[in-house]
């Protein structure tokens, strides 16, 4: 589904990604861990098409298509979804209005008829249950005045509505208490299907107790320096990142 080859990216002339290689197949969950400043969030944003990052080398193939040349909205319509670490507040635009516009843009891309207001409301009612989101939040402006937990839950709710093929969760666990974490993780697990995949970017192993990854990667200095099964995350939790750094230097 996703094939990243030798990806280099920079922002304002600072190199952040220095040759990432990553392959994600349908049905898989990949966790990306790593210390602060290793490039995890940059990778997530580059995949979503954030233009402030400059891809200087390498390629990203998504279902065989060159992702780098696609504007962010087209990536979204092709099924890529980024759950933001810091969801943006948009005063004056209601959550439902925004989501309906997004869903219908994606449906148009798929040659489906747009949903009218009635269809849309009954559709999102089902999705609301999935992430236990408050009805009240839907009528409020996007993320405005939401608590940290509400914002993260709203990201997963959007994911439930838009049904992406490849979801990228950028530190969705940060700032969540244990109950909120469980609700968010449950939502992600319920949305799991054989034909979709997820990349979970996280600092802590905690989230991976709930969203069990098939592969864990360690990102360091803009490269993937170690990959392994879910036990790798446990080892990192236990021993920190220093041994990975030492291993890498000794190679």
């Amino acid at each position: 589904m996703l094939e990243i080859k030798n990806l280099h990216a920079s922002i304002n002339g600072n190199k952040i990604l220095n040759g990432i290689n990553l392959s994600v197949r349908a049905g898989e969950i990949h966790a990306i861990m790593g210390p602060n400043g290793s490039g995890k969030s940059t990778l997530a944003h580059v995949l979503a098409g954030r233009e402030v990052y400059n891809v200087t080398d390498g390629e990203i193939l998504y279902n065989g298509k060159n992702l780098i040349e696609m504007p962010p909205e087209e990536r979204a319509r092709e099924g890529i979804f980024l759950a933001f670490q810091y969801p943006v507040e948009i005063p004056g635009v209601s959550n439902t209005y925004f989501l309906k516009a997004a869903l219908n843009a994606i449906r148009k891309h798929q040659n489906l008829e747009p949903m009218d207001a009635v269809e849309f409301l009954s559709y999102i009612k089902k999705k609301m249950k999935l992430v236990e989101i408050d009805r009240d939040l839907l009528n409020r402006p996007v993320n405005e005045g939401f608590s940290g937990g509400e914002k993260k839950r709203n990201e997963i709710f959007q994911m439930a509505v838009l049904e992406p093929k490849l979801a990228i969760l950028d530190e969705t666990d940060s700032g969540l208490d244990i109950d909120a974490l469980r609700i968010v993780a449950d939502g992600v697990n319920k949305l799991r299907k054989p034909d979709n995949a997820a990349i979970v970017v996280t600092h802590y192993q905690r989230l991976l107790n709930y969203i069990v990854p098939d592969v864990v990667h360690v990102l360091w200095d803009g490269r993937i320096v170690k990959s392994g099964g879910k036990e790798l995350a446990l080892k990192l939790e236990d021993q920190g990142y220093d041994w990975v750094k030492d291993d890498t230097k000794n190679k």
């Binding site: 979503a48 098409g49 954030r50 233009e51 504007p71 962010p72 909205e73 990536r75 979204a76 319509r77 979804f81 980024l82 933001f84 969801p87 943006v88 507040e89 948009i90 005063p91 004056g92 635009v93 925004f98 989501l99 516009a101 997004a102 869903l103 843009a105 994606i106 891309h109 402006p141 959007q158 838009l162």
Partner: peptide, 26 residues
């Protein structure tokens, strides 16, 4: 905010209009 809306499938023009209209609608 423009990037956030685009990352959900909304075109750049539509995103700009949505934000401009929201500003006026206040």
């Amino acid at each position: 905010a423009i990037f956030y809306l685009r990352s959900r499938g909304i075109s750049e023009n539509a995103a700009r209009d949505m934000l401009t209209h929201a500003f006026a609608n206040d």
